[in-house]
Design a protein around this nucleic acid. Structure first.
Lengths: 343, 343
DNA sequence: TTTTTTAGCTAAATCGTTTTATTTATATTC
DNA sequence: GAATATAAATAAAACGATTTAGCTAAAAAA
């Protein structure tokens, strides 16, 4: 049996009351609007009996709130983002919101396309990992009083809410950890980028090297070569040109590619090199050698993001809710990733 | 400057024409509805000049189509599902659809909750990895002519569309591969479940063992212990009780836990054991020992799912679009995961 | 000249809600 | 008994689109 959806009108007709009455009752405004106990009960019972569910589209159209939040990341299939997505999802559904996830591939064009797409849909709020050149679009959202919060990276020039981690501090600490384990020739493999998070990470490394009077070995690979063999070639070349005793990978997919290169081209070195990666991965703890990792506080980031968006949704343009949070990252030390220390 | 959203009414007022006319023009029905070239041009130009974007909510409310598709998986942060999500996302956005991802944790209650949530929202179609006991809910969607397609697992008792892989065949082949590499005591670690995919995998293993007159060593761990140390304990116990020379992990998170156990409790065995995992992971190819894996054709699954949903959306209740697809999985042989064959 | 066609446009209903402003009857006060 | 207050409900206007049915004036046919 095909049970077509019931509307508030059906209920009104069936009970011989007005749609207004039904609406009031269903929205819990019976008392406030002085609807009699009798009618209230009748409506509630009937609604429940036919399993009435309001049409959210109509509701949203009328109220202007869609109860949808967009989460735009670089790549939802990336370990870091997918783990975070899971956390955000749970909080959102718990609070009655739904989440649209999307990946901008760190490309401006795609970011813009997506933002426009969602504006048509009256999305309530945005959690965004911004691609390098979309300040303007973000600014526009802000001036239009649409809740946006950036994370992972941000634009210092514009005044937005954000949640980031202390990248330079984290990398600095981790680099020092390598030094403390008596590594001398420490390489840093990163992507060419002037986004805040990557610059901070590189700064953390360089500072640590300077403080310890160690030579800096930085390799910057172009971002958009991500999926080609070119990155592998660059890393391989870099590794043969520099006789490093340890490597710091500035982001998780570089670690992956880097390990692949080492396994393929320098298999004998795998057990000698000290390795640290930015962003942990479940598999790193069982990798051999286990990989020491800079780990971002996923739970905390997720909570902070959602809480902020929810608070922004409740705030008024007159007194907006401000939150610019810098969280600390932790270093997961897996000793055996340092051959010197291996038992 | 706060540019409030423009409606079709604004355009009509500004140009001194009716909203009907504007609507016709913007929907490309100018010719069909005999709107003059002059007016058509005027409307189009003006709409573009104020950067008019239709309110999708209103559109959806009127047309009954939300252009949203739900993808419900077990856990969006799982490698397999997140990779697939990325593929589905791309296809969907390309076709003008948005995707709501959600995780049901393989729990019926949560699945139901989510489905109800989305029905209120007039979602256009569903791609679902069903939890064990939601036949009824799926049936209901089907009888209500709402496009649903199941994947990864399905319900043989109800007639739905689905996309799955040939699990038993895949595991059978992979098991035979172990036998061919002269392993004799092959363990099979799986989760206690009577869902189609897990039963098929176990069947594949058992058949292979029978054909080769080898003893069967199956460990079934309870599903909901997923995140506790209990699974580790069970696997550790199983490994000490059976002197296996190789292990087949029936799903990816078991592989992860299993490797952890081996590393912690049987470190000397890691280089002896033959290991195969169901579901590949980028890190497995650089794992040491590299892990041979049964790999699902993600691209193909994603395409098949989206294409089917889109075709279902276009079909009528009178002649529904049927598609029950069984795709083959492939075995990614990484020789060095077999010590016997290691150089 | 009258009738029919056609081109060009639009009023109004509709989708399913929420919300404001009113109505109607009854009870209370003076 | 008239005026006022209150309780209980509702009509109607929104939200922003789509779509049906119809209107008007000019052109074509009779």
């Amino acid at each position: 049996m095909k049970n077509k959806r019931h509307s508030i009108k059906d209920i009104a007709a069936a009970l011989n009351v007005s749609v207004t009455t039904v609406s009031f009752v269903l929205n819990g405004k019976a008392k406030e609007k002085r609807i009699s106990e009798e009618v209230t009960k009748k409506v509630l019972e009937y609604a429940r009996s036919i399993n009435y569910k309001p049409n959210q589209l109509a509701q949203s159209l009328r109220t202007g709130r869609s109860k949808i939040i967009v989460v735009m990341v670089e790549d939802i299939s990336n370990y870091f983002f997918s783990k975070l997505a899971r956390i955000i999802e749970d909080i959102a559904y718990d609070k009655g919101y739904k989440v649209l996830f999307c990946s901008n591939e760190n490309k401006d064009e795609r970011s813009r396309e997506l933002i426009n797409l969602f504006r048509e849909r009256q999305v309530d709020g945005y959690i965004i990992v911004p691609s390098p050149g979309i300040q303007e679009d973000i600014s526009e959202l802000v001036t239009d009083d649409i809740p946006v919060i950036l994370f992972d990276r941000y634009f210092p020039e514009i005044d937005t809410n954000y949640v980031i981690i202390d990248n330079s501090e984290a990398v600095h600490n981790a680099s020092q950890h390598l030094v403390d384990n008596s590594y001398k020739k420490i390489g840093f493999i990163t992507i060419a980028s002037n986004q805040t998070q990557m610059e901070a990470r590189q700064r953390g490394y360089r500072d640590a090297m300077k403080e310890n009077n160690l030579e800096e070995f930085v390799l910057e690979v172009p971002f958009y070569e991500k999926n080609t063999g070119k990155v592998k070639a660059l890393i391989a070349e870099y590794l043969s040109n520099n006789d490093l005793d340890s490597i710091f990978f500035a982001t998780n997919y570089l670690t992956q590619i880097g390990l692949e290169v080492i396994r393929e081209s320098f298999p004998d070195k795998i057990n000698e090199l000290g390795i640290i990666t930015f962003d942990d991965n479940d598999l790193f703890k069982i990798y051999f050698p286990p990989i020491t990792a800079v780990s971002q506080p996923l739970e905390e980031i997720g909570k902070e993001l959602m809480n902020t968006v929810l608070k922004m949704l409740k705030s008024t343009p007159e007194k907006p809710y401000r939150n610019q949070k810098i969280l600390p990252a932790s270093l997961i030390k897996r000793n055996s990733s340092f051959p010197n220390k291996r038992p």
